[in-house]
């Protein structure tokens, strides 16, 4: 009985401490707060072999839509599934020594290797297809910026000012004519 109470206390505090540390974080309640603290999606996987956009781009004649099938027509651009990758990668594509590591990584990859978490707050509407239809190219928005790794697309932090600049027709290239700027066009 000597250690009974200490045991109870340790057990209780252990549970509470675990709950305190591992419990789900409180939901942010004001504008934009969700963005910075967004945790990675639970089923996201760090790829064993890094994906390099430049190896999959113009050099082999692929466009964004070949893998991101919704980019020109749908609201979301979509991430490719493993099946999409395997369309090409079931064949030995190069002689480079790295290809074996890639092949084995592909074998063990889950069906949906990339889980993209939508970074748009729920009150913002963005439709890729509308912008594509208006002649906006993917890289007009998705370009590498200072401080952003050259190969990362889609991870940019877009600000409303970026949207508005273009929609007001003051985009640097003067490429696009003004578009809707009333609140209800993009917010709900």
């Amino acid at each position: 009985m000597k250690y009974f109470w200490s045991g109870v206390i340790v057990l209780l505090f252990g549970f509470l401490l675990a709950d305190f540390l591992l419990g789900e974080p409180r939901v942010a309640t004001r504008a934009g707060m969700e963005l910075g603290s967004a945790p990675l999606a639970k089923n996201s996987v760090v790829p064993l072999v890094a994906f390099v956009h430049s190896l999959h781009g113009d050099s082999i004649g692929l466009t964004c839509v070949n893998c991101h099938s919704g980019a020109k027509t749908e609201a979301r651009a979509f991430m490719p599934t493993k099946a999409d990758c395997m369309d090409c990668h079931r064949l030995p594509l190069t002689e480079k020594p790295g290809i074996e590591a890639l092949d084995s990584a592909m074998k063990t990859a889950p069906e949906e290797p990339w889980v993209h978490k939508n970074v748009l707050p729920p009150h913002v509407v963005f439709h890729h297809g509308v912008h594509a239809a208006a002649g906006v190219d993917c890289y007009d928005c998705h370009t590498a910026r200072p401080g952003v790794e050259q190969d990362v697309y889609g991870g940019e932090s877009f600000r409303m000012q970026d949207c508005l600049d273009c929609h007001r027709g003051v985009n640097p290239q003067g490429k696009f004519k003004p578009a809707a700027t009333y609140c209800g066009a993009c917010h709900r």
């Binding site: 027509t73 749908e74 609201a75 509407v125 439709h127 890729h128 297809g129 509308v130 594509a132 239809a133 208006a134």
Partner: peptide
């Protein structure tokens, strides 16, 4: 948006 992206 769907209209403008496709039919429109």
């Amino acid at each position: 948006m769907n209209f403008k992206a496709n039919a429109g």
